[in-house]
Amino acid sequence: EIARTPAGWYSTQNPAPDVSAIARMRELVTLITAEAGVPTPYVYPLPDGSITGEWTRGDWEISATVTLPDLAIELHALNVETDDELEAEIAEFDERTLSAFSRFWSGMDSDTGGQ
């Protein structure tokens, strides 16, 4: 569905979602849902052509954004109760991607919202 989003969907100047960013997000979601049991995020395009996925986990608001042009994955989490933040970046999609994402994901305690 995101791949069918046309240029100008947000404003007259913005590009369509980048097909490589869509593919990278699909790879990430497939990996983390199948191998780590992470729930599927809500995925949507951003006005610059990049793609983001979001989760709510306890008091944490979490996002993974595939950035352009390098297709790195920026991870961010904000605890809405304590204002604690966690950030990480996955520069290369390779055999270390799952462990890098899992380390980031385990940095949040979904029951108490603490670290």
Rank of each mutant, 00 (worst) to 15 (best):
L28P: 08
A23L: 15
I90Y: 03
A16K: 03
N14K: 10
W9S: 13
P45A: 04
R4T: 08
V66L: 12
F104R: 00
W9I: 10
I51K: 02
D111H: 15
D70H: 01
I32D: 05
Q115L: 14
S63M: 13
L75E: 04
A64H: 09
Y42P: 03
I90M: 08
Y42G: 04
A23K: 09
E74Y: 05
I90R: 02
G37H: 03
G8S: 06
T65H: 07
I51Y: 08
E95I: 13
L31K: 00
A3C: 11
D84R: 06
T52N: 05
I22C: 11
T82C: 07
P39D: 00
R103N: 15
T97S: 10
W55I: 02
Q13L: 07
I51W: 01
Q115T: 15
T56F: 15
S102M: 15
E27T: 13
Q115R: 14
E27N: 09
A34M: 12
W60N: 08
A64Y: 09
A36Q: 11
A23S: 11
G37C: 06
H76E: 09
M25C: 03
R4I: 07
A77S: 04
S50N: 01
A72N: 08
E95T: 11
L86S: 02
T30Y: 09
V66H: 03
D84W: 12
I2R: 04
L98K: 08
Q115M: 14
V66A: 01
S102D: 13
V19H: 13
A91Q: 04
G113T: 11
R103I: 15
M108A: 06
I22S: 12
S110Q: 13
